[in-house]
Each structure stands twice: as C-alpha cells, then as structure tokens.
Design a protein around this nucleic acid. Structure first.
Length: 543
RNA sequence: GGCCCUAUCGUCUAGCCAGGUCUAGGACACCGGGUUUUCAACCCGGCGACAGGGGUUCAAAUCCCCUUGGGGCUACCA
C-alpha cells in the first residue's frame, strides 16, 4: 500500500514532465491499492497564483488523473495548499531552532553574493559558514527591527547520507559538503525543503516520486527527517524528459523560441507587443535581455500575434493540437519506463495493473512527437464512439472551431468518415468546409491550378458536367452519389480521381478532405451545386 | 569550477541485476514497393545500435576501472 503525492508548484499550466510525475504517482498508488494525494506547493508568493492552481487541476482532470485527497475534495490531512499551513511549518521550524538544529541568519543578498563568488574563485562549492554560536531569538528580532532580512537555516549534519533510490540504487552524499540551506524565508514562508518534508510526514506519504532534479535535495531532506524523527519514504527519482533541442523540456523552451522570434523581428512595435501580452514594455525588455520570463498567457498571446509556432510543452498545448488524453498518458508512461507486458498501446488501467517499479530507466529521454502521433492514431481507433465524440466536442470548443455548434449526428458522421485520422485537429481541418458558408470557402491557389486549370481547364470542364448530373440526381445518398461519380468516370474513360478531385476542390477549397461521397452527402446537394457554380464562375477563362 | 546521475538503432526501448541461448528483439521515424477518390489509415520489404579504451573470464551488451559524451543541481524556485 503506497501513499503517494503529486506536489506541483502552481506557477502555470501543467507541463509534460509534471504530468509524467503525476501519472506515476497515481499508477504507483493504484497498483498497490493505496492513496494518491494532490498537494499544492505554493510557498513562493511571487510566482504562485490561484489561477495556475486551477489550471494544473484542470489539466490533471483532463488527463484522467484523479486524486483521492487534495484541493476541492479535501481529506483528513488538509489543507492541501501549503500557503494555508504556515502555522504548522512555524511549529516545526521552532522545534529545530530550540533543538539547536537550525539557526537564524541576517545576511544581505550582497554579502551572500560575495561569499559565493569567493567560493567559486577558489573553485569550491559554496558552503554557508555556520556561526560558532547561533544568534538568539532576541538577536533575530533586533536584526529585523534594524531592517535586515531574517531567515532560518538548517544545520546540515556532518555524516554520510545514503539515498536509497528505486531508480538509481544507493547514492551516497557527504553531509559536510552540503550547505546549510534555508528552511524559512524572510517573508516567514517555509522553503520547499521544509514544507515538503513536514507535509510528507503529516500526510503519511510512503513513496516520493519526483524528477531527477530533486535528487540533490534528497540528502538534505533525509537529514531533516532524522532531525525531526520522521520516517524516510521510499524515493524514486525519474529521469528528465528533454526536448528536441536537448535541454529539459520546460516552460523555458517556449519562452526561448518566442524570444528568438521577437529578436528576429525588425522594427517591432514593442509597446504594441507588450499590450497584446498584457505586460509592460519594461517586462519585455527584461525578458529580452535576461532571465525574466512572462507568464504563459502572455507568451501565448505574443506568439499568436507574431505568428510563431511555440513548441508544445504544456498539457493544454497537446489538447489544443488534437491529442487524446489516453494517448498522451500512454505515451508519457513509456518515456523512461517500460511495461513488463508485450505491447505498447495501453490504457491507464493496463498501465496500473502491470506496473513494475523496477522497470524505470535511468537515462534522460527525448520527447518524440512523431511517436506520440502514432500513439494518438491508435487511441483514436480504440476509443468507443461516444467517448470519441465527447473528446472531439471538447476539442472543438477549446479551439473555437465553427464545428463546435454542430449537432451530434453530423459530428458522428464526420468522425466516422475520418477513420485513420491521427489527431482530432485533422478531423476538424478536413471537415471545416461543412461549417463554412458557401461564399466564405477559401480556395487554395495551388490546388486550383493543379486540379482545375491544368491541361486546358479539364477539371473545370468536368465540374460543368458534374453540376448538371448532380442536379439531375433524384435520390441523394452516399451510395447514389458514388454510383453517379463512378458512372461518369467510366463514361469519360478516366480514373475516379479525375472526377473526385475537381469536385473536392470546388466544395472544400483544397485537395485534402473527407472522402468525397460522404462529403457531398453531408454538405447537401444544393450547397454542392452552388459551390461548383461559384468556382466555375470564378476561375473560367475570360470571365 | 564543485557535487551528483547517466551511456544499446535517428527516437523510445527489450536484453544487463543472476555473463554463454544476442550473427542484439520490438515500436516509432526513415527509405523502397503495394492499395487508393485526396490526406490519413492499411499491407509487404529494407536501412539501422551495444560510445572509446583497458581489465576480469574459457566466454562480456551484460561485471570492474579509465576516458569521452549527455543531463541535473549548484536560489530567501520548486
């Protein structure tokens, strides 16, 4: 029975890496018949927001990752927002202070900076110089009154600390090489380290599954657990997911692409860009020159304005690209992990049932979008009709497709006509012509040329014939349309393509669409004929 | 710079822990062909890897060491 937790810091949308951690937390808990807790680590007042917390929860829900305890649903170990647990942390910090296992510090940023520089000049790692004698509470208050920032640091014990990691085995650290880290910030909030250790104990967490970036923090956490007399949970540090560029797949990736795009843009009106992003010009300048990064909505808005494609990093990006949560879950579960069963396309339940914690990979893995695409294709095929329809409707609404208002019967037909589609976006794109007014159809110039005008306008001529024949058609059905078109092709001694392609371009504007018979049937014979007429009129020579 | 992790096809990986059955298996991608009313889907075939060096051993992808490469951390972020 494992009690696991996903503990995101609500700073924006859930990204791929976070989703994978969350997934394995769930899988591990459910595989053992245990419990899965969601905890918001919002101890950084400047970066966290309630909006972001909501976004993270929405993204988890979309993925089908449900927590047993946490925000919204509550639970016995709540509250589940760390910002609401400050009094608890205070108590524990006091305990360490009284026990002489933590101490106050009053250094300024400049002083710390200088010490760090000294260390790096000596080619050493920075170790905070622990005072011989710890300042008293009175000293701390005095310093505070004098305007100095007061923080609390944990006394790192001078001993070997062994992290027993499920993924990596034993990892040894020397306590004396780890700096006394801050456990309480000057704003009174605990740091991640303290809050995480305290909450894991209070919430009865038995298994901590997190990214490899936390491996170096673990000896410090274990030392604190010892100092408090807490149990040490089982640790599993997952490898990181890297993007095509090579670096860790994170929000930074998107910011980087946007930054490059802005810099490339000549004579850009920065004031206008800032307004679009809802940020100040100063923030833009800061973004361009340094490490500062606007938040996700601002980045998205600016990218849309500049028409740059940002890499998909966040779960919501994949949602909007038309991926299924089932596919995404399946795919990210197999990144840095291999199931002990002989197949790759799996449901969440199969992932849970077959879970084997010894099968994690140690190496970083690259996110391969093409493979995701293949997984998505399989999952679209696998999903039952009702579920697929509901996923499709969610997607249409999210991307503001005109098809969002269509009725279920039509959408079901569209989906059916698109069997083999790789993404929901593909289905939407191929069927947009059904939801576009006749006079608003956009014609692809290249396709018009290739299919209608080439060879002395043979395609256009075909359309003339088709218009008449279609108008004469008594009974309109997929079958009757097919019969008609095949008959025409036969009479004209040409392949069906010579008939279907001009028709396709006439009604869809491009050569890519649903199968033609269904297309005409769904569009309706009147709209079909009127679009044919429109095209003939528009592209006939001399007119 | 310091500390830590890590190394099998282009990518995700199986095999490694308990060395021989590995002329290294699968999936995706890619290439060639087929099917076809477009795009997909589908079918058939092909290309393609144990990072390098040293040990240990009758025998190494598998165990040990070194080098090199990749990644992480090095914050009053998590």
């Amino acid at each position: 029975m494992a009690v696991t937790r996903f503990a995101p810091s609500p700073t924006g949308y859930l990204h791929i890496g976070g989703a994978r951690t969350a997934l394995f937390d769930l899988i591990w808990a459910k595989n053992t018949g245990g419990k899965y807790i969601l905890r918001m680590e919002d101890t950084d007042q400047s970066r966290n927001s309630p909006t972001a917390a909501r976004q993270v929860m929405d993204d988890l829900s979309w993925l089908g990752i449900k927590w047993d305890e946490g925000p919204i649903i509550g639970g016995p170990a709540g509250p589940y927002f760390q910002s609401e647990r400050l009094d608890i942390y205070d108590k524990y910090i006091q305990r360490l202070l009284t026990a002489g296992k933590a101490y106050y510090c009053f250094d300024t940023a400049e002083e710390l900076e200088r010490m760090r520089k000294e260390a790096s000049d000596k080619k050493q790692n920075f170790l905070y110089p622990r005072p011989e004698e710890f300042p008293t509470k009175a000293d701390a208050e005095k310093a505070k009154a004098a305007g100095r920032d007061v923080v609390v640091r944990f006394c790192m014990p001078d001993e070997e600390i062994i992290v027993e990691d499920v993924v990596r085995g034993q990892v040894r650290f020397r306590g004396k090489e780890i700096s006394d880290f801050i456990i309480q910030k000057s704003d009174g909030f605990p740091t991640y380290h303290l809050a995480c250790v305290v909450d894991d104990e209070l919430m009865g967490i038995t298994h901590v599954i997190r990214g490899q970036e936390h491996l170096m923090n673990t000896p410090g956490h274990i030392a604190m657990q010892k100092a408090f007399g807490f149990k040490t949970p089982v640790y599993a540090h997952l490898s990181v997911i890297v993007s095509q560029g090579g670096g860790k797949m994170s929000k930074r990736e998107r910011a980087k692409v946007l930054k490059a795009a802005i810099k490339k843009e000549q004579g850009l009106d920065k004031a206008k860009l800032a307004a679009i992003g809802g940020i100040s010009v100063a923030e833009i300048e800061e973004f361009l020159s340094g490490d500062a990064m606007p938040d996700t909505p601002a980045i998205d808005a600016m990218a849309a304005y500049l028409k740059v494609e940002l890499p998909e990093i966040n779960i919501i990006d994949f949602f909007k690209s038309g991926f299924l949560p089932e596919a995404l879950v399946n795919f990210i579960a197999l990144l840095g992990y291999s199931a002990p069963i002989d197949k790759e396309i799996m449901t969440l339940q199969e992932l849970i049932d077959s879970f084997d914690p010894t099968r994690f990979n140690k190496t970083n893995c690259l996110f391969d979008r093409k493979k995701l695409l293949a997984f998505n294709t399989e999952h679209i095929k696998m999903l039952d009709e009702d579920k697929l329809l509901s996923r499709y409707k969610d997607f249409l609404a999210a991307v503001n497709s005109p098809a969002a208002v269509a009725d279920d019967t039509l959408l079901r037909k569209v989906i059916k006509a698109c069997s083999g589609a790789r993404t929901l976006a593909e289905i939407d794109h191929k069927s947009r012509f059904l939801f576009t007014a006749d006079d608003k159809v956009e014609y692809d110039q290249k396709d018009i040329e290739k299919v209608l005008l080439k060879n002395d306008g043979e395609g256009l001529a075909m359309l003339g014939l088709l218009k008449e024949k279609l108008a004469e058609l008594k009974e309109i059905s997929e079958q009757s349309i097919e019969n008609l078109l095949r008959r025409i092709a036969e009479q004209k001694q040409v392949g069906l393509g010579k008939v279907a392609q001009p028709l396709r371009v006439a009604i869809c504007g491009t050569t890519i669409s649903l199968p033609i018979f269904e297309s005409i049937e769904m569009l309706g014979i009147n709209a079909t004929i009127s679009r044919i007429e429109q095209v003939i009129k528009k592209y006939s020579k001399g007119s």
